[in-house]
Deep mutational scan, measured.
Amino acid sequence: MGSVRTNRYSIVSSEEDGMKLATMAVANGFGNGKSKVHTRQQCRSRFVKKDGHCNVQFINVGEKGQRYLADIFTTCVDIRWRWMLVIFCLAFVLSWLFFGCVFWLIALLHGDLDTDYKDDDDKSKVSKACVSEVNSFTAAFLFSIETQTTIGYGFRCVTDECPIAVFMVVFQSIVGCIIDAFIIGAVMAKMAKPKKRNETLVFSHNAVIAMRDGKLCLMWRVGNLRKSHLVEAHVRAQLLKSRITSEGEYIPLDQIDINVGFDSGIDRIFLVSPITIVHEIDEDSPLYDLSKQDIDNADFEIVVILEGMVEATAMTTQCRSSYLANEILWGHRYEPVLFEEKHYYKVDYSRFHKTYEVPNTPLCSARDLAEKKYILSNANSFCYENEVALTSKEEEEDSENGVPESTSTDSPPGIDLHNQASVPLEPRPLRRESEIGSRR
C-alpha cells in the first residue's frame, strides 16, 4: 500500500517518465508532432483561472445545437444578457408577425380586404367582416399587437362572423401568456443567479507553507467582502497533476483530494472575517514527500473551492481559484488583518494578500521532518523571529508614515537576534492585533 500511495502522490514527473511517455506515443502511432509532453521546463496551462473560470474549450460535440435547444431554459439562463435581450425582442416580434399574417390571411380569404370602410357607412358590411377595420397587412399586424398586449384601442375587434378568427384570438392570448411567463422566468432566474456573489468572495493571491502546531501546513486565505453571511460555508481543495499509471496509461489531469478537515468538520467555516484555511501535510497528503526545492521545480495546480448558500436567496454559490506551484510561498505567513478595537473588531483588507517571511522554516519535506531528519529550532526562537518579522513590518510602515526611528523597538546594537533566540524570552503579545485562523 505504501508503494502504491507514493506512486499515486508523486508530484514532480521525472525525466524517465517523460521519455517513457514519448516512447509510448511513438510506439502507439501518436508521434505526429502534435502531442505535447509536459516536462519541468514546460509548465501546463492553468486549468482553473484565478477568477474561477475553467480554462476549457469543448470541440467536436455531436448534436450540440439539439442538446442546447432541448434544455432551452438553461440555455437562456446561461447566455449573455445581450443575447437574452435579442431573444426577448424576437420572441414578441415574431409572435406578433405570425398572428398578424394569420389574421391577414383570414381577412384575405373572407374577402374583407376588398371592402373600403372609410367611404361605406353600411354597418351590415362591417358585421360581415371577420375582424372589423382590418383591410391590410398593417392593420392585421396592429390588431395582433393589440390582442397579445391587451391594449385594446377599440377600432379593431373580432366579430362572430368567422369562428376561426375567434379561435385565433383565444389562441394568441394563451401563447402570449406562455411567452411572458417564459421570458420573465428566465430573466428573473438569470438575475437571481448567485454567480455575481463570487465577486465579493476573495482568495489570497498566494498560498503559503509554514509551520503550525509543530507541523508543516499548506495555507491559503479566504474572505467575504459583504456583511451578509454565506450560510453553510465549506471549503474543498484538489491537486491536479499528470501521472502515468503502473500499466503505462497517461492521465493528463489526475485529481487528488486535499484534506482540509472534512473528517473532523473544520472544513465548515464561519466566514465573517478572513480565515486562513489549513491543510496539514501528513502522510496522507500529496505534498508529504515534497521539499522546498521540489515545490520550486514541480508542475501541478491546486484548485480551491468555497461553497455556501447566499443568505438573501438561499441559492448555492461556488467560488473557485487555483494556485500553481510557483504561487506557493515556502516559509511565509499571512499578515494579520483582524484588529481588536474598543467595542468592535476591524478588518483591514489592505493586508489581505500580504505575507511575511518566517525565518528558520524547515526546507525539507514533511516526511523528513516526521522522521527527525531535520532538527527544528527552539520553539522560543521560532516565536521570537516570528515577532521580529512582524515588528520589522510595523517599523517599515512607521518610517513610511514619517514616525521617528527613535520610537521604534530596535534591538541594541551589536546583538545578533538569531543568537539571542536560544535565550528564554518573556511572551510578547501583539500590541493591538490578533489573527483569527482556522485551528486544527
Rank of each mutant, 00 (worst) to 15 (best):
M24D: 13
D348F: 01
D368W: 06
Y250T: 15
I145G: 05
S285R: 00
H205G: 03
D267N: 08
S264V: 11
D121P: 15
Y356M: 15
D267W: 06
D160Y: 02
L390E: 15
I328Y: 01
W81D: 03
L225W: 14
I179H: 11
A192E: 09
N419C: 13
P412I: 14
L390P: 06
T149K: 04
L425H: 06
L230H: 10
P359Y: 04
S95M: 15
I244R: 15
K64H: 07
R226Q: 05
W96I: 14
T391E: 14
E280Y: 13
V169R: 02
D121Y: 14
V4P: 15
S228M: 14
S434K: 07
S204G: 04
R333E: 12
E63H: 14
L216K: 01
R156I: 02
S434A: 12
E161I: 01
F143A: 03
C383L: 13
V48Q: 07
I275M: 11
K354Q: 14
F92M: 12
V26R: 12
C89N: 13
Q41D: 14
R40G: 13
I258T: 00
R428K: 13
G111L: 03
D121V: 09
V231Y: 11
T39L: 07
T74S: 12
Q42E: 15
A210C: 08
N7M: 06
C76M: 08
V169S: 02
A207H: 03
F262V: 10
G152M: 02
I164G: 08
H418A: 11
S434E: 15
L21V: 10
F270W: 09
D120Q: 00
R236V: 09
T138N: 04
D284K: 15
T159P: 04
D368T: 08
A379G: 11
P413N: 11
Y334D: 00
F58E: 11
G402S: 13
E301Y: 01
G18P: 06
E280K: 12
D119P: 00
E396A: 10
T149D: 06
L417W: 06
Y288L: 00
E307R: 06
H205P: 08
E232K: 13
Y9V: 14
A186E: 14
T276W: 00
G223N: 06
F339G: 11
K125L: 15
G265P: 12
F339T: 15
L109D: 14
H332F: 10
V26D: 15
A379V: 09
E435S: 14
V272L: 11
A389F: 10
I415L: 13
G2T: 08
H53Q: 04
E247A: 10
R236E: 08
L109K: 15
C76T: 11
G261M: 08
P163L: 08
T149H: 09
F155R: 07
Y344G: 10
V310Q: 12
V303F: 07
P404A: 08
L90I: 06
L425C: 13
I258C: 03
S399K: 12
Y250G: 15
S10P: 12
P252Y: 15
I209T: 02
E232F: 09
Q255K: 04
G223H: 05
C101M: 14
V61K: 14
V12P: 13
Q238I: 10
E433N: 09
I256Q: 11
D284C: 12
P274N: 03
K195L: 10
H110P: 01
G33Y: 06
F88V: 12
M309I: 04
A389G: 15
G261V: 04
D116S: 15
E63L: 13
A379H: 10
D120P: 00
A325G: 11
C43L: 08
T150F: 03
V337L: 11
I266E: 14
L363I: 15
I328T: 03
L287D: 00
S173K: 06
T200H: 14
I251E: 15
N198E: 14
N60H: 10
I244M: 11
N386Y: 08
Y117G: 00
V37N: 09
N28G: 13
Y323Q: 01
P286H: 01
C157E: 05
F182H: 07
S264F: 13
L240A: 04
E161P: 02
D289I: 07
A186H: 07
A181V: 15
K215N: 04
F167I: 14
T149N: 04
K128H: 13
E146N: 02
E405F: 06
D416N: 06
M188K: 02
R243M: 08
W330I: 01
I256C: 10
F143W: 03
I184D: 02
F339W: 11
L230T: 09
N206M: 06
T115I: 04
N224D: 11
E199Q: 10
A129M: 15
Y9F: 15
L85H: 06
A129V: 04
D121A: 15
G265F: 09
K118G: 00
E199P: 13
I328C: 03
A237P: 01
I79F: 10
P404F: 09
L306E: 00
T138C: 05
T39M: 08
R197M: 11
F92Y: 04
S392V: 05
W83Q: 06
E395N: 11
D116Y: 09
R5P: 14
V187C: 06
R236D: 03
Y153C: 08
I415V: 14
V134K: 00
D284E: 14
V131R: 02
N326R: 07
A314Y: 08
T115R: 03
R243N: 02
F137Q: 06
D257C: 11
R80M: 07
I174T: 04
K215T: 11
L253C: 11
I106L: 06
D416S: 10
A27F: 05
A421Q: 11
I178W: 12
D71A: 12
D410F: 08
L109R: 15
A298K: 06
F30P: 15
A165Q: 03
D254V: 09
P194S: 06
H53A: 13
